[in-house]
Design a binder for these strands. Structure first.
Length: 440
RNA sequence: GACCCCUUCGUCUAGCGGUUAGGACACAUCCCUUUCACGGAUGCGACACGAGUUCGAUUCUCGUAGGGGUCGCCA
């Protein structure tokens, strides 16, 4: 039997970490076994669903690299993949239930499914066998008076029609799963294998909802400067521990290691700091070009522009280990992109602190002018020569140059900055610091 | 209220009857260092509680407490 899994979001809002991880585990399951990953949009609630939400969910999944084999935009043999377009099918299945005498009408026309009221056991890859005693709950409504169908019913019908072999979903569905099995039985169909994965909670242990920090993929990750690979990796670690030496694993490794049986059964609290740590790890591995590509929107959003891609790439690359999020890049690298960068207040204070600072800068400038070539080494040699000429340590000279060249008290090596901006700008910036800040 | 799931450092977790209870993030200190970081080292820090079973329980069983979930004409 081929592995067919699905992610079935309801387009009522943005893609959330919980949903994203559910999608991710399904994706991993399909990829690991060479199966099929189906994306099905459960938009049966006309009042709450929006096209924007559906588009947003697809966007988030694409960003995470969770490509689907069947579903919206890509089609497939079991379409359409929007439940709002499958009414005829549901009507046909409803008829089967009717013929079997398993449904009856309420006074207002709503239709209920008659439970079998037998003990039902859910065989779950994560939770083991969970048996529910014959229920005392009222029969469940599966069709509204207006003829539209309800979640439990369409979910089961589609899982049958789409030949879903494994249902990996949030643990919040476990308590209702016996109802689904009751329905599968009523249709004479075999229920899929279930795997109810633990929920992701807020740091304070409460249920994560749309408004909570770190919950929305687009807002908290895409726009917050995370790399998709890092989020992918971090989400995997919430509720599942691959048997590997490191926690930092590529998609390929994660796919090879994936094992639904090994998913935990206890909820996990979300830790933004650790997610950022993963991001920092991935950020540092990027080549200058890759880093620039990821950084572009964040740089331009801050008004930074450039014409030389190689230079811009080298610039962001030079500060890559200072940041853990792409959004932090502009504040660390802005002076590589503009000449009118501001001077930090304490930088001005430190420059003005000692009268001889102006002399140090002038001598350094003179030595730099004489440099025949412009490499990090030659810049370093020039600064050293200047220090020697004044009988001070290079360590006294470097900070001043840093202030002059970047307006910042922290950053990459001074020689790296000077080399990257070039000889002319280095000279000009020293002159500007001398005249504008020190007034000489 | 009924039913279901869960319970190891602050957080994510390893552990599957005998361990100095291991790792990662965070935090602290030190080293490295022209700054900030990176990196390296060290430290801090946990088996919810109570009964059993057993020669021996973090590990197995039951109970209690706590957390989460479900019981919709939401999904």
């Amino acid at each position: 039997m081929s592995i067919r899994v699905r992610f079935a979001p309801s387009p009522t809002g943005d893609l959330h970490v919980g949903g994203a991880r559910t999608a991710l585990f399904n994706w991993l399951m399909a990829r690991k076994h060479g199966g099929t990953f189906v994306l099905r949009v459960e938009d049966t609630d006309g009042a709450r669903n929006t096209a924007e939400a559906a588009a947003g969910i697809l966007k988030g999944m694409r960003w995470l690299g969770l490509d689907w084999d069947e579903g919206p935009d890509v089609g497939g043999d079991c379409g359409p993949y929007f439940q709002s377009q499958r009414k005829d099918l549901y009507d046909a299945y409803f008829k089967k239930l009717e013929d079997a005498g398993r449904v009856y009408a309420e006074h207002d026309g709503a239709m209920r499914f008659k439970f079998s009221r037998t003990a039902i056991t859910v065989h779950d890859l994560v939770c083991g066998d969970v048996t529910f005693a014959p229920t005392e709950e009222p029969d469940m409504t599966i069709r509204r008076p207006d003829g539209s169908y309800i979640f439990h019913f369409v979910n089961v019908v589609d899982d049958i029609e789409m030949r879903i072999s494994h249902v990996i979903r949030g643990e919040d569905h476990l308590s209702n799963t016996w109802k689904h099995i009751d329905l599968f039985n009523a249709f004479g169909a075999t229920a899929p294998t279930y795997a109810h994965i633990p929920l992701i909670l807020n740091p304070d242990g409460t249920k994560m909802s749309k408004r909570d920090e770190g919950s929305a993929i687009e807002h908290s990750y895409m726009n917050a400067g995370f790399l998709p690979d890092a989020v992918f990796n971090y989400l995997c670690m919430l509720g599942w521990t691959p048997k590997a030496e490191s926690e930092k694993l590529s998609r390929t490794e994660l796919t090879a290691l994936f094992d639904a049986d090994a998913i935990h059964s206890s909820n996990a609290k979300f830790d933004l700091k650790k997610a950022q740590w993963f991001n920092a790890q991935y950020l540092r591995e990027l080549s200058p070009t890759e880093l620039l590509n990821h950084a572009k929107p964040f740089l331009t959003a801050k008004g930074l522009a450039w014409t030389d891609d190689a230079m811009a790439a080298a610039a962001v690359h030079s500060v890559r280990e200072k940041v853990s999020l792409l959004t932090e890049l502009p504040e660390w690298a802005h002076y590589f992109f503009r000449e009118d960068f501001p001077f930090e207040a304490d930088v001005v204070t430190k420059l003005k602190a000692k009268p001889e600072n102006a002399v140090l800068l002038k001598v350094a400038s003179d030595q730099l002018t004489q440099a025949a070539e412009w490499t990090e080494q030659s810049v370093h040699d020039a600064v050293e020569a200047a220090a020697k000429a004044l009988s001070v340590k290079p360590g006294a000279m470097m900070p001043l140059l840093r202030f002059a060249l970047s307006g910042q008290s922290r950053g990459p090596g001074v020689t790296t900055i000077a080399h990257l901006i070039g000889k002319e700008k280095t000279q000009a910036r020293i002159q500007r610091a001398l005249s504008n800040v020190l007034g000489t």
